[in-house]
Amino acid sequence: MINIARIRSIDLLRGAVMVLMAIDHIRVYSGIPAGGPDPAIFFTRWITHFCVSGFVFFAGTSAFLYGQKLHKRRVLSRYLFTRGLWLVLLELTLIRFFWSFDVNLTSFVLAGVIWMLGWCMVLLAIMVWLPFRVIWITSLVIIAIQQVFGLVPPGWSWWNFFYTISEGAPGNINVLYVILPWIGVMMAGYGFGALLQLEPPRRDRLCRRIGWSAIVLFLVAGSVVALQRGGDVPFLFRLLAQQKYPPSQLYLLMTLGPIIVLVPFAEKAKGWAARILSTFGKVPLFYYISHILLIHATALLVNWFRTGDTLQEHYLTAPFCGLPEPLRWPLPLLYIVFIFIEIFLYLACQWYGRYKSSHAEKVWLKYL
């Protein structure tokens, strides 16, 4: 049986990246662009880069820890396979509707982060049968040589589900998150789960070494690339503006390094902030589904108060959407809405967390 205290950092850090994720999704509905020369807008977007990396990495870690709790690889594999397919189904139906409020789910099909997580879990269900060392070594290889996957001929449009090679995927599906190299990140997180089971002094020492090594490598290699780019953009912006779709090696070093460094601190974190973040992190899927619905509904209300129109027609292809510049929200309004939404989400997640823990006999709760 896993000691709950040993995984406190997972709940807390996962909750933290989910809070950051809400900022980015409110930005989508506010019409504020994803970055740009304005420092406030640039860093509003940049800070949210940690979200998907942490989300995928800790999904792998949670899979490992759950497997240790089960002591049955077959049961873990079946769970990952069925949960993965469930996530794909949710992305194509309920989550798609919450993004757009469009009942015609075939007019715009999104392969978003939950889609990617689902297929990565399906693949991980197969990978868990491999020797543990093979899993984490393979994860590093996938991340390190990911550009090789882009050498597939552009005519193979279906390969866009795995790695971006051309403009579009078949079936009118808009691919936001590809499977490669994210499956490598999830497998790396799976390997990280074993590290978390070490004695605290050794665990913390390894987390610091791995995390700081990734940060230093990013700063050195990223600085070289940023200097080569040149141009009028400030050096810091060039350094931090790393490729997210698909995530480059520098992007993953930039985002995963600090997360791993923070694990020892998160293990010891106490107080109200730690409790709030852990509450979010214990029910990640419930938070994700709820926050999309709440953000979209709130955006319509804010637009109506500001303009007399909900502007719903601009959100039919969310998160690929935007507002005309005169209708965009000012940045302070984004953060005011963010605070109110997080308060509501905390109350909802607190209720659901209690309900889930008091009804452990209900198997379906493991899937939400």
Rank of each mutant, 00 (worst) to 15 (best):
I10P: 00
D11P: 01
G15E: 04
A16L: 14
I26R: 02
S30D: 06
P37L: 13
P37K: 10
D38K: 09
A40D: 10
A40H: 06
T44R: 03
I47N: 05
F50K: 01
C51M: 10
S53N: 07
G54C: 09
G67P: 02
G67E: 07
L70G: 05
R74G: 13
S77A: 15
Y79F: 14
F81E: 04
T82R: 12
T82F: 13
R83D: 06
L89Y: 13
L92S: 01
T93R: 08
D102L: 09
L105P: 04
F108A: 07
I114N: 00
W115G: 01
L117T: 04
C120Y: 04
L123Q: 03
I126W: 15
F132H: 09
V134P: 00
V141E: 01
V141W: 02
I145N: 02
F149Q: 01
G150A: 13
W159R: 08
N160C: 12
E167Y: 15
A169D: 03
L180Y: 03
P181C: 08
I183C: 06
G184T: 02
V185G: 00
V185C: 05
F192H: 02
L198G: 00
E199M: 10
D204S: 09
D204T: 01
R205H: 11
A221R: 06
G222K: 01
V224N: 05
V224D: 07
Q228I: 13
P234D: 11
F235V: 10
Y245S: 12
S248Y: 06
Q249A: 15
A274Y: 06
A274V: 08
T279D: 05
P284Y: 04
F286D: 04
Y288E: 08
S290Y: 06
S290T: 11
H296D: 04
L300G: 06
R306H: 11
T307S: 11
G308F: 09
L311R: 11
E313P: 03
W329D: 03
L331W: 11
L333R: 04
F338Y: 15
I341N: 05
L347K: 09
C349R: 03
C349Y: 05
Q350P: 02
Q350D: 11
R354L: 14
Y367M: 13
